[in-house]
């Protein structure tokens, strides 16, 4: 299978991730959308690495996976803290900076 097939799968996953981030009103969905976007980027990197013959894309994908793990841990800590303070996980509810 050529490069184009992988790029199409990656594009569909990217679009799903964007919609999941923007259209759902739950912080957990936003996290899942970000993970989908990062996974689509990883798929692109590894596909280009394969059809280019270099390993650099795979190394980039490893860095991206590491940063995704760090981001998920910090984001979930923030979500749990916000839920403790506001009793809500809708991203519209914390609005203390508006006042």
């Amino acid at each position: 299978m050529g490069l184009a097939g992988y790029l199409i799968v990656s594009a569909v996953m990217l679009a799903c991730g964007i919609v999941c981030t923007v259209a759902r009103k739950n912080v957990i969905y936003i996290l899942m959308g970000i993970e989908l976007i990062l996974n689509a980027a990883n798929l692109n990197l590894v596909a280009f690495s394969r059809f280019n013959g270099h390993l650099d894309g795979q190394v980039f994908a490893i860095f991206s996976i590491i940063l995704a793990a760090a981001e998920a841990a910090v984001a979930l800590a923030i979500v749990l803290n916000v839920f403790g303070l506001f009793d809500s996980i809708r991203p519209d509810d914390p609005d203390l900076l508006k006042e």
């Binding site: 009103k25 739950n26 957990i28 996290l31 899942m32 993970e35 995704a68 793990a69 998920a72 841990a73 979930l76 979500v79 749990l80 839920f83 996980i89 809708r90």
Partner: peptide, 16 residues
């Protein structure tokens, strides 16, 4: 890792 973390987040927050 990340999926288990997300499942923990789901368990600790109420369903909507």
């Amino acid at each position: 890792g990340i999926l288990i973390l997300i499942l923990f987040g789901i368990m600790l927050t109420p369903p909507d």
